[in-house]
Design a binder for these strands. Structure first.
Length: 278
DNA sequence: AAAAAATTCAACCGCTTATTT
DNA sequence: AAAATAAGCGGTTGAATTTTT
C-alpha cells in the first residue's frame, strides 16, 4: 500500500521517506519495552527497516509522548524571538526552554515566520524607526566612550599611521563594547524598551522581526541589518550573515553550561517565566 | 475552475560531539 | 589511547497543502 509514493523508497536496505502508522507502532512498542536510545537495535529487534538515525529522529520529533501538539502560542513565539536574539540558530538550546517543542519545530517556525518575512508596511516602518533610533543611540554611546577613553588614556605615543582606515569603524565599536559592559547593558535595556514600545505583544504580527539579531551588540550588526530585509547579507569579508543570528555565539559564550550572560534584564519574558540561561 | 506560486514541515544529509569498545 | 559506534545538531530538501492569480 505504500510503494506508491516516489520516495517511500528503499535504499541500502533501509526504508526512507514518510513513516507509516505500522512503522510508528513498531517504534513506539520498542521504546516502551527498551526505553529511548540504542536506536540501531530497533531494526534488529523489531524488524523495522529503518536506520537508527531515522528511528531516533522519528521518536524525538514526532512520537515522544511529551510533545506538545498544535500551534505555537503567542507566548511561545515571543520566547522564541527572545531566545533567538540571545542564542542565534542554536535551535536545540532554544528548544530546551519550550517544553514539548522540538528543535526542528522551532527551526521551521522561525524560518517560515521570521527569516524572510514580508513585513507589512507599518511594521516595516516601525522597524526602520527602531533601527534608526538604535543607530543613534549607538553612535552616541560610541562618542561617549571615545571621550572617556581619551580621558583615561594618557595621550602617549600616538603611532599615527594613516593607512589604516578601517580601525576607526568596526573594531572601535567592538572593543568599546568589551570595555564598557555596563554601558552596553544599559543600551541593551533601552533597545528592549524600544522594541516593546513598537511591538508590545511581540507577536503582533508574524513578522515581528523588530527584535534585532544583533540586539546585544556592536555597530557591525546595526549597519549590516539596516539595508535590507533579506535574511542573509554578504559582508565585505565574504562571510554570510543572517541578521537574526548575530555572530557565532560560540565565540562569545564559550562556556554554555556555566557562563552567565548578564543580560537577563533585557529579556522580560525570560525573566517573567523564571527561566534562566545556562 | 484550474494552473501557478508560495508555504509548510517531516525527514533527509553531512558534520560534530559524546560514548563505548 | 585510539578506533568505532551512537547521539545530537543545524542546514536543506521536496511532497503535500494552501493561497494567489
Amino acid at each position: 500500500m505504500e510503494g506508491q509514493f516516489g520516495w517511500g523508497r528503499e535504499e541500502g536496505g533501509w526504508r526512507k521517506g514518510p513513516w507509516t502508522a505500522q512503522e510508528d507502532k513498531l517504534l513506539v512498542e520498542y521504546v516502551r519495552q527498551h526505553g529511548e536510545g540504542r536506536w540501531n537495535s530497533v531494526a534488529k529487534l523489531t524488524g523495522l527497516k529503518r536506520s537508527g538515525k531515522s528511528c531516533r529522529l522519528r521518536w524525538v520529533n514526532y512520537l515522544r509522548p511529551d510533545l506538545k501538539r498544535g500551534k505555537i502560542t503567542p507566548q511561545e513565539e515571543s520566547l522564541i524571538l527572545e531566545l533567538h536574539a540571545l542564542w542565534g540558530n542554536r535551535w536545540s538550546t532554544i528548544a530546551r526552554s519550550l517544553p514539548g517543542r522540538t528543535d526542528n519545530e522551532i527551526k521551521n517556525y522561525w524560518r517560515t515566520h521570521f527569516k524572510k518575512g514580508k513585513p507589512s508596511k507599518n511594521i516595516e516602518r516601525a522597524r526602520a524607526r527602531f533601527l534608526k533610533q538604535r543607530r543613534e543611540m549607538q553612535s552616541q554611546l560610541l562618542l561617549q566612550g571615545q571621550d572617556q577613553q581619551q580621558q583615561e588614556k594618557q595621550p602617549d605615543h600616538d603611532d599615527d599611521d594613516d593607512g589604516d582606515a578601517s580601525r576607526e569603524t568596526v573594531p572601535a565599536a567592538v572593543s568599546l563594547a568589551q570595555q564598557n559592559e555596563e554601558d552596553l547593558r544599559i543600551l541593551q535595556q533601552d533597545m528592549d524598551d524600544l522594541l516593546f514600545q513598537f511591538c508590545p505583544m511581540a507577536s503582533c504580527t508574524s513578522s515581528s522581526c523588530l527584535l534585532p539579531g544583533g540586539s546585544c551588540t556592536s555597530g557591525v550588526s546595526a549597519s549590516a541589518s539596516e539595508e535590507g530585509y533579506s535574511g542573509d547579507h554578504q559582508l565585505n569579508g565574504g562571510a554570510t550573515w543572517g541578521w537574526g543570528s548575530l555572530w557565532n555565539l560560540d565565540d562569545v559564550v564559550d562556556d554554555v553550561d556555566g557562563g552567565a550572560c548578564g543580560w537577563d534584564s533585557s529579556f522580560p519574558l525570560l525573566q517573567d517565566q523564571g527561566l534562566a540561561f545556562y
